[in-house]
Nucleic acid binder design. Structure first.
Lengths: 138, 138
DNA sequence: ATTTTTACTTTCAATTCGAAAGCAAATATA
DNA sequence: TATATTTGCTTTCGAATTGAAAGTAAAAAT
């Protein structure tokens, strides 16, 4: 729980740099991504993602995101040693930004991107509002 | 020019993690931001931004962004020792993602954000397409 | 009763970072 | 023309951050 003690230092009063100060690392948005897609996840679930985050880093990021109130950690209904992580509305509101990354990568890194993501990107191009709402309202 | 030799390693075929592999650090999007806003910038201009990037880091990032073809480095028309950096269409296409950061920060970090940015965020909320196009078409 | 699983923490070497100083070439100034 | 200054970097180096691997404690499964 080292991460909980730290305070965030904002480099400026720019909204972009401030956002980056909060979650502008290589892992935070991937945790948000998994939660947008799956709704809820355990520590082990996150560890199983293709990008292979280390447990030390995952632990640190989950703490930080919880402190920022982007995610919530709660008990599993039946299993006492498993925790469930879910998104807050504040965390879910990062989804539009993530969606723009998907669109950009689909346009410029297309031949490197997995098929299901390409389809999602195409849906975003066709009907941005509808595609976003489909996830946001869940 | 150390940065030019490196090759990018993608952690997965996910469009989000791939985007983060390319420009998911604390500085790259701020360089893009300045170029969206000002059109063209010199090394010194970037150095003067509120976030106070170090010259070593700035030099490194400019190289990387140039290799990625997000920005172009060209000669100043009259001053031989000054270079002008501008956005490629590929780089400009990151603006929608940046705009979502602005909206998010305006909503959740509002009292920390500078006035002009708040106004921009409000314009984005009112007329996203129009506000984006206003910059994109320049 | 023992083994396995889960969610971490700890350790440590390697990478990355920021701050400061240095530098060469071009330009501005005296 | 000589000197000072500016610009766009590079270099250095101590500090912070990272990934990989191993370790741990409690709960659950066998």
């Amino acid at each position: 729980m080292k991460a909980k003690k730290e305070k965030i230092i904002f480099r400026s009063d720019c909204p972009i740099s401030s956002a980056l100060d909060l979650f502008g690392d290589k892992w935070s948005l991937l945790i948000i991504r998994d939660l947008v897609y799956f709704g809820e996840r355990t520590f082990k679930d996150f560890s199983g993602a293709a990008e292979k985050i280390s447990s030390a880093r995952l632990s640190d990021r989950l703490c930080k995101l919880e402190v920022l109130e982007l995610i919530i950690k709660s008990n599993h209904p039946t299993n006492k040693k498993v925790y469930l992580y879910t998104l807050t509305p504040k965390g879910m509101d990062l989804f539009p930004a993530i969606a723009e990354y998907v669109k950009w990568s689909n346009k410029y890194l297309n031949d490197h991107i997995a098929e299901p993501a390409k389809e999602f990107a195409q849906n975003l191009e066709k009907d941005r509002e509808g595609t976003l709402n489909q996830f946001m309202k869940r």
